[in-house]
Amino acid sequence: MSPQENVKFLHQKYIQSLNREKRWVRFYQMVIFLVFFSCWELASQKQWIDPLIFSSPSKVGRLFLTKIQDGTLMIDLGYTLSETVFGFILGTFLGTFLAAILWWSPMLSKISDPYLVVLNSMPKVALGPILIVALGPSFTSIVAMGAIISIIITTIVVYTSFKEVDPNYIKVLQTFGANRVQIFREAILPASFPTIISTLKVNVGLSWVGVIVGEFLVSSKGLGYMIIYGFQVFNFTLVMLSLLVIAVFATVMYQLVELLERKLIKNGS
């Protein structure tokens, strides 16, 4: 065997070992999934756990099918999803926008510093009742909840990353006579994209919290309402269904952000 063929052979072997590892990882993931749901089903049927409280996968599945057929699940899901997406986008954009203003005016950033600290430490969901009274028990106030929960932390994190951009990049631009807008567009913003994306990932989770709590409070429609309603009439199959649907769609949103990350951050890697 020539040395070249040998290298090729070894490379193939290496790729095979990578693939084998990947298959085992997938396999164990599937095992965990199946074991969890079958244990849940079994425990519920054998009455090891209270089926009234913990329901069972089969009951949740049946409820899922009926609610798909009568269309009510889609309506609730539609509300919650659009509220979350709007809240998430609004929170991230406004947060980044505020960060840009703070970067633009160091004076303003010094003045607002203590207020940002106070607002950040405050539990935002506690503002829920005020928002609902001010904006009405509707779509708007729930979107506001989804946004407000992530806006301050986004501002703080993104502003910090704006400040930490290597000053030599700014120097390069200044020697070309760049003004502040150009410096922001060419260096500050693109250098901070990785940070903005990672706040997006955090904000996906936060917006779900804001929206679900908002729906608890408004109690008219949505997956959060499904949970609070199921709780009040002691229909925990409904609660479980809602939780599972939330888990699936929160994951989908997270994956979409990761897709965006791969599109946005291109530097030849």
Partner: peptide, 28 residues
Amino acid sequence: NEIGYMLQQDYLFPWKTIEENILLGLKI
């Protein structure tokens, strides 16, 4: 733009291609 300044390290913008990098001064 009458004075060019080259720093100790290259400070090429990692998110820009080589072409975008060399045209940066003209763009600014």
